[in-house]
Design a protein around this nucleic acid. Structure first.
Length: 465
RNA sequence: GUGGUUGUAGCUCAGUAGGUUAGAGCACCAGAUUGUGAUUCUGGGGGUCGUGGGUUCGAGCCCCAUCUUCCACCCCA
């Protein structure tokens, strides 16, 4: 009989108490902001029908879906000859459900299913784990949380402006000061494609441009040529990588580059409107700037984002001076629910990467002490008498809203004190024969190492501060 | 999915050319100190060296497979 060593599946993690407390601090900060902007929570099942999920993320995405084996006799629908047609054919027959791959598609499914009950514009946020059968790497897991906020059923660019506001508010509340919100517009990218003589190729161009940070101008050049973009078009594109100036100057330069392209003009007009909204909102994103004087909100024509369903404004957020990719991103999509037969619903949404934000806050040591929760006071007992004496005291403390616990057995004092020390419990109350006789309990401040004899009322008023 | 990398005590890691009984620090337990924690001192428990095969007189070390870790690519949060 071999004793099996326990383990967890590849790419998954346990979160210990200290980590959960810090993660909740991030989640709560995000929730508070979402709700302040009128977004309400939504939860959808961990599993969806496979038919809802497949075909929504491209061939690559379909490969990364976790499928759930049908219960019972999962082979009942398969025939021996199915085997010969390969695994994909079998998969369809033995698995009808899958774990959700993101929160956006389940949201679209929800909107379509509940179109008659929903009042548009519909604003929802969703904080739940998603699963991908990707190969894990640092900062990439098979189970991870997404924090999405989307609004559907309105074309108003106020939504885009409010997204900028929410990003700014959340990151500021988390103590971050040096970050950049990059914004761009798919129309501008399409306009650029047209202006350089590659109309309609903005999809390819976006995918490649998105890698500019990573592979550099040379790498982008090579890959664009590989994808069949002409030499002259690439040459016209390259000056755009290094455009400089204020946001207003950038818009001016783009105006002349994009000329009469309809898509380009649409993009410019949208961005101008977003700026207008932000300025009326007195947005801090417009006034704040990072250490090198770059405005917090920055138009970046090289921002592309790989996802193909974006059609309008796109966002990405980078914390400066830390080695970490974007911690938030999103954009407008015109036809998310179209895939479920409900066309013409425009929406805009974005998402925070909690795991990455966690790492950034850890690196910059921005988790406040107040985000630590825990027992405030430990009651130490010596025997049955002191245990019974301590019980009503314990209840009194809890009734007063003080996190209190009684060590559950009359262990050696050294052990009980050690427990308090280990759990960083700041106060200990000793209840022994002397204390029971006098009614004055011994309160020990673990940090100062001082102790005093006090009544329970005195202790409560002291701890409640 | 492609190429590479990693695995030794609860944790972080040593382990020399393949050669007796696999080590250290931290952590844990006990005692010094029967009513006082993070310091100090003394002692103690704990490893089938990721797993399964193979080569060898002999394997933690070499070979194969597998799982895991991390990295680059693909893609993405």
């Amino acid at each position: 009989m071999s004793k099996e060593k326990p383990s967890i599946p590849k790419g998954t993690r346990d979160f210990g108490p200290a980590v959960v407390v810090k993660r909740n601090y991030i989640f709560n900060t995000i929730k508070r902001t979402f709700e302040k902007f009128g977004y309400l929570p939504l939860e959808t099942p961990a599993m969806e029908q496979l038919s809802v999920l497949t075909g929504k993320y491209g061939d690559e995405g379909d490969q990364l879906l976790f499928k759930i084996l049908n219960s019972g006799d999962f082979l009942s629908k398969t025939k021996p000859e199915d085997l010969e047609q390969g695994y994909k054919n079998i998969t369809r027959k033995v698995a009808e459900k899958g774990l959700r791959y993101d929160l956006t598609v389940p949201f679209a499914r929800f909107v379509v299913m509940n179109r008659n009950e929903i009042t548009f514009p519909f604003k929802r946020y969703q904080i739940q784990p998603v699963w991908r059968a990707d190969r894990p790497q640092k900062g990439r897991y098979r189970e991870f949380y997404q924090c999405d906020a989307d609004v559907v059923g309105t074309n108003s660019l106020l939504c885009e402006a409010e997204i900028v506001q929410m990003i700014n508010e959340v990151l500021t509340a988390l103590g971050l000061t040096d970050f950049t919100i990059k914004i761009n517009h798919r129309g501008i990218l399409a306009g650029i494609a047209e202006a350089i003589g590659e109309k309609g190729r903005e999809g390819d161009i976006c995918v490649v441009i998105d890698k500019l940070d990573k592979i550099g101008a040379e790498g982008v050049r090579k890959e664009l040529l590989e994808r069949g973009i002409s030499e002259s078009a690439v040459a016209k594109l390259e000056p755009l990588y290094t455009l400089e100036g204020t946001n207003e100057q950038l818009l001016e330069q783009l105006q002349s580059i994009l000329g009469e392209t309809a898509e380009g003009q649409r993009g410019l007009a949208d961005l101008r409107e977003v700026w207008q909204y932000l300025s009326k909102l007195n947005s801090q994103a417009l006034t704040a700037s990072n250490a090198s004087g770059i405005p917090r909100l920055m138009l970046d024509v090289t921002l592309a984002r790989g996802l193909s369903y974006y059609t309008g404004c796109i966002f990405e957020v980078k914390v400066n001076n830390v080695s970490m990719g974007s911690i938030s991103g999103g954009g407008r999509y015109d036809n998310l629910t179209g895939m479920f037969g409900m066309p013409g619903v425009s929406g805009v949404g974005f998402s925070f990467g909690v795991d990455r934000i966690y790492d950034v806050l850890e690196e910059l040591m921005l988790f406040p002490d107040s985000s630590q929760v825990g027992t405030k006071v430990l009651l130490v007992q010596f025997d049955k008498d002191s245990e019974f004496y301590a019980l009503p005291v314990l209840q009194q403390l809890r009734d007063a809203g003080i996190a209190a616990e009684l060590y559950p057995e009359p262990a050696k004092l050294k052990k009980q004190m050690g427990y308090a020390d280990q759990k960083s419990i700041p106060y200990v109350i000793l209840i022994g024969s002397e204390e029971m006789a006098s009614g004055k309990l011994k309160l020990r401040d673990m940090q100062l190492g001082e102790q005093q004899d006090l009544t329970i009322e005195e202790i409560i008023s002291l701890l409640i501060k």
